[in-house]
Design a binder for these strands. Structure first.
Lengths: 132, 132
DNA sequence: ATGCAAATAGTAATTATTACTGTTTATAGT
DNA sequence: ACTATAAACAGTAATAATTACTATTTGCAT
């Protein structure tokens, strides 16, 4: 199954969005990325941010994370990995445990489905919030 | 840590919502639960559905699942378990593998956070869609 | 340099969800 | 059974995140 070949053109906006994402360890929402890139391109449109984020994410260059709190977050690191969201401050952080690829195979067997990947979201109280 | 004691009163609406959820193996969204319970209580309000769903879910009687497609889904089975969403038909199904409770402990150690639980969402093509 | 489609800015529309308000109703105390 | 009280309600308005639309700009192949 080949992806549809779309000739993508360079755009200052997309480059700036990608840079902003790669320069942070946070997992910003679309609107905070918007705030960030506006420092560089003051009249960039929020729609442009959304369009590029979803394009980059379907292109596999970034990761889209469902934070479970009603906002999508984005991750400049596209390698599959797990996340945690703090129930207190709603920050999203990377969790450095190996991706359980066996789990996908196991689930394929028992469910009959094709599994592309899985995501794990830990929920709890982050170290900072724990110590007030 | 004790939950705040709220004296809850019976309501036909809440009972009907809970029954609707428990009678299905699907994982309906708020609006499809609304459609369902309207067969029984035609003038029920959508706000009532949302209010009861979030109350039942914080009360631990049902599960709220982030489908990763912009809608929250609800599960009448409150035991923690994993789910799969089909990228084709967007149906959510239960995945019958044991909950990895060791993972929570492991993550607590390496992250310093308090982990309450984790959720796993498999993404792929369900058996039905696979066979068109 | 020119033409064309991709990408954009700005705005409007949509969707899911929450908040508000005046009315109804479950239930505890008489 | 009667009454008072606050939980729950229906109906509607408001909010928030995201997507769609449109006329204009721009990257890039010829």
């Amino acid at each position: 199954m080949q992806e549809i070949e779309t000739k993508r053109r360079y755009s200052k906006q997309r480059e700036c969005i990608l840079n902003a994402l790669r320069q942070t360890k946070r997992h910003p929402s679309a609107s905070s990325i918007y705030d960030e890139v506006r420092k560089e391109i003051p009249n960039i449109s929020l729609g442009t941010v959304y369009r590029n984020l979803s394009e980059l994410s379907t292109g596999g260059e970034i990761l889209k994370i469902d934070a479970g709190d009603g906002t999508e977050r984005y991750d400049g690191c596209a390698e599959p990995h797990y996340h945690m969201i703090c129930r207190c401050c709603h920050s999203v952080s990377d969790i450095d445990v190996p991706y359980l690829k066996d789990l996908d195979k196991q689930v394929e067997k028992i469910s009959g489905a094709d599994i592309a990947f899985h995501s794990v979201l830990f929920s709890g109280t982050c170290e900072r919030c724990k110590n007030n």
